[in-house]
């Protein structure tokens, strides 16, 4: 394990834990931005530059802003005095421990530790664009349709209901 990986992993895990455990919702959203940034840096470390910058653009630029707007619109900015965790939190913790145990055990017993990375991979924007316009053109069109439908649906769901008289 290299030192940059360890630094990035610790930062990402700490930010993710903070995002899930802080009391103030705005602080949670900011910690979430830290976790997304750490993941973007990990993508850059894995030679996936385009995905790393897409992550920064979409998650830090759009999703985080959307979540902050939702917090403000639902008056979540005030710190709640009541309990932070739901009434059935013990089951959540049990399920989480079971899931992580299974995943870690599977990874430990898999062939993953013997894999060697491909030497010097290139994923330039030109290659990605070529692939998107030839081999992956149908998924690209479908995702465009899905995004349009989702955004129209989001506007309709969040629209204020007409007062019926």
């Amino acid at each position: 394990m290299t030192l940059p990986f360890i630094i990035l992993a610790v930062l990402t895990i700490a930010a993710a834990v903070a995002a899930m455990s802080l009391r103030n919702l705005i602080h949670c959203a900011l910690a979430m931005v830290g976790a997304f940034g750490g993941l973007a840096a990990l993508y850059l470390q894995l030679d996936a530059q385009f995905v790393g910058f897409t992550q920064i653009l979409v998650y830090i630029g759009a999703v985080a802003i959307l979540i902050v707007f939702a917090i403000l619109l639902t008056r979540g900015g005030q710190v709640p005095e009541k309990a932070l965790f739901s009434s059935s939190w013990i089951w959540g913790v049990l399920v989480t421990v079971a899931v992580f145990g299974t995943l870690a055990w599977t990874i430990k017993n898999s062939f993953a530790s013997q894999r060697v990375p491909a030497e010097r991979v290139e994923a330039t924007v030109k290659e990605i664009g070529d692939a998107l316009m030839t081999k992956f053109v149908l998924p690209l069109e479908v995702i465009g349709l899905l995004l349009t439908a989702a955004l129209i649906g989001a506007v309709i769901i969040a629209m204020r209901d007409e007062v019926k008289k």
């Binding site: 899930m20 009541k82 932070l84 089951w91 959540g92 989480t96 992580f100 995943l103």
Partner: peptide, 15 residues
């Protein structure tokens, strides 16, 4: 797996 478990814990336990 750790990030997944943290996200799962938050989704299942927070109010």
């Amino acid at each position: 797996a750790m990030i997944f478990a943290i996200g799962l814990a938050g989704a299942l336990t927070r109010r």
